[in-house]
Design a protein around this nucleic acid. Structure first.
Lengths: 205, 205
DNA sequence: GTCTATATTTGGATAGAC
DNA sequence: GTCTATCCAAATATAGAC
């Protein structure tokens, strides 16, 4: 911590701008000059804060995964039933994908391959920590009879279904995130109809 | 058709190589020089066959979507029951994603944004034709009581779940594509357990 | 910590000979 | 239809002044 608060602020703003632009345009189609412009400096100055362009992507992903783990862990702890926990995880992942963490989370899902193998390896432990929470909850659901499929497979199908929502779901539409979460839980566990999400979570059925 | 067969062949080989490299490396990280090398010519010669790099991506996507529509239409026609048709569509989409059309289809799913808006518009009608087949089958399933969710929503969740398989499913593993299709159908319609795919499709239940 | 200036590389694309 | 040669633009990154 040799930096002053003001300098950290600039670095953080770069990470924030990068997340936004990487999501909108893709990592490869976003130039360092654009990142610089977004925070009001020139391109050369960016390299005072980061060693390379890829280091910026790494920073975006790293900070994002940290938040994802935190949020998911909270959600898992907040529910007392197997089914309620599953719903909470789904709601949380959807909120991560569409709330104010959206930019970074989208990048984790869909721009993973823009990261070099070395840096992917760097983040792997964190990704696995996140997935661990999911797999535990799905395994419990399976043990309790609420889930028919293999947890491993169910999670991968769910990852795709949830992640893909960034391409079509819009918060200002008719469908609420909680309704959507309820639909997804219903498919996963095979019985819930839409709109019952709150009920289940509230009463911890 | 002013070209000789041999020349068309060269063009086709470029499209094929492009599909493979775009999938493995991404469109932006693949250079025209690499494409040329893959078919044994120099970079300048590529522009005899295509006006621009993006035209190659467009050609990959266009030929791919044509195949996708063909295959899906066949599948829809081959089944006589609602549930059997749904299973056939799922199996077909998974096969498109993992069979010998894999490269192009992966690109359709995950590199759509590398295409300029103008060219996206060019392909939109074909994409919609493909989705129409899905929505009709899902609507029928809903009318018949086999599906609880809105067809529109179900299809989007399914698109994500199926597409995402390219990141984790491998044909040489323990799980067969038909088993996977069965699991997915089970989730979608809420009751089928794994391994019953063949039975259902065979007996047209 | 930012700027100026620039090194260096790479990429898409073109013109004209063969 | 391919090659040679090259143009031009854009990008990452660096060095040193302020």
């Amino acid at each position: 911590m040799t930096r002053t608060p003001r300098q950290d602020d600039r670095r953080d703003r770069l990470i924030e701008a990068a997340a936004r632009l990487f999501r909108k345009q893709g990592y490869e189609r976003t130039s360092v000059r654009q990142l610089a412009e977004a925070v009001g400096i020139l391109s050369g100055s960016v390299f005072h804060h980061f060693d390379s362009k890829e280091d910026i992507l790494l920073a975006v992903m790293s900070t994002t995964i940290t938040t994802m783990i935190e949020r998911l862990r909270e959600a898992a702890g907040s529910a007392s039933t197997t089914r309620g926990r599953l719903l909470a995880l789904i709601q949380t992942e959807l909120d991560l994908l569409h709330g104010n963490t959206r930019d970074g989370v989208s990048i984790i899902f869909f721009q993973w391959n823009s990261l070099s193998n070395a840096n992917q390896k760097e983040l792997l432990a964190m990704r696995e920590e996140y997935e661990r929470i999911w797999l535990d909850a799905l395994q419990a659901a399976r043990d309790g009879g609420a889930l028919n499929a293999e947890p491993f497979i169910a999670r991968r199908l769910l990852t795709g279904a949830n992640g893909w929502t960034i391409y079509w779901y819009h918060r200002d539409g008719a469908l609420s995130l909680d309704e959507l979460a309820g639909t997804i839980l219903g498919m996963l566990t095979g019985s819930l109809s839409r709109g019952q999400a709150e009920v289940i979570r509230g009463s911890e059925v």
